[in-house]
Amino acid sequence: MNDVFDFAAPLPDGEEQPLAAWRGDVLLIVNVASECGFTPQYEGLQALQERYAERGFRVLGFPCNQFGGQEPGDADQIRACGLRFGVSFPVFARIEVNGDAAYPLYRHLKDQAPGALGTRGIKWNFTKFLVGRDGRVIDRFAPQKKPADLTRAIEVALDEPRPSAANGS
């Protein structure tokens, strides 16, 4: 797999959503949790979604229960997450981001953008990956980095031209 648009991800109802649906958009992929100290970041993520959606920006939320058991909900509770936190961006089925059972998309993200000192593992909930219009990972941001602090990086990515069909994208 060459870029994130080659992957699909599970929705809470079990259906697979091809990420190719957002080909040409800038993505912010975030492992989320509903009972985490960083959960208030949902508000900031939604603000980014609203601010940049018309320019081709999408937030994609991936619930994960690997950090302190902070996403214990079942599929129905995860589906309700959008209503509970007032988000309009997709919130996928719960996945693992580390270990042998790490979802393939997250293995790819970590390979493309290692963390500090070259570490691959996700350290906690709300780690963020910024993906360019070409599907390549631009940067990785620690959980402590607030969504509002990403505006400059997002704007730079949005200013990149959309890939043309002629170059195979």
Rank of each mutant, 00 (worst) to 15 (best):
D159V: 09
A157L: 02
G168N: 00
R152S: 10
Q17H: 12
F7G: 05
G132F: 05
V156S: 05
A53P: 06
A113M: 12
R120T: 15
N98Q: 09
L60M: 11
L117M: 15
K145Q: 08
G56W: 11
P163L: 04
G37D: 00
L27H: 06
H108C: 06
L83C: 04
G68W: 06
E71W: 09
R84P: 00
M1D: 07
E71K: 13
N2E: 11
E96M: 11
P72D: 02
S169D: 07
F5S: 01
Q41A: 03
K146R: 14
G118H: 09
G44L: 06
L109I: 01
C64S: 13
K128N: 06
S164C: 04
P147F: 05
E50K: 14
P63V: 01
F129R: 05
A21F: 05
C81M: 15
G69F: 10
T151I: 12
D111W: 02
F62L: 00
G118Q: 13
P163Y: 08
F141W: 08
V4D: 08
A101C: 12
F7Q: 04
P163W: 10
V156M: 03
F62V: 01
G82T: 02
Q66G: 12
A8V: 03
K123D: 07
C81F: 01
G118R: 14
D139V: 05
I138P: 04
G115C: 12
V59P: 08
A20Q: 06
L130M: 08
R162T: 03
F7N: 02
Q41V: 06
G44M: 12
V91S: 03
N167T: 09
A53I: 05
A148Q: 12
G24E: 11
L105S: 02
F141Y: 10
V156R: 11
R58L: 13
G168K: 04
N167E: 13
R94C: 06
E16H: 07
D3K: 04
Q66L: 12
A101D: 15
E50G: 11
D159F: 07
A53K: 15
E15W: 04
C36T: 15
C64W: 04
V131H: 00
Y52E: 00
A142S: 13
F89T: 04
W22N: 06
E16M: 15
R107V: 14
T127V: 15
S88W: 01
K145N: 11
Q41P: 07
T151E: 13
E155Y: 02
P63I: 00
F92D: 02
S164F: 10
L27V: 06
V156Q: 02
F126K: 02
F62Y: 11
G135R: 10
C81Q: 14
M1F: 02
R162K: 13
G61N: 09
A20G: 09
P72S: 02
E160P: 00
F85K: 12
F67A: 10
T151Y: 04
D3V: 01
T119I: 12
P104V: 00
A9I: 10
G135D: 06
G44H: 14
G24W: 13
D100L: 11
P72F: 01
I122V: 14
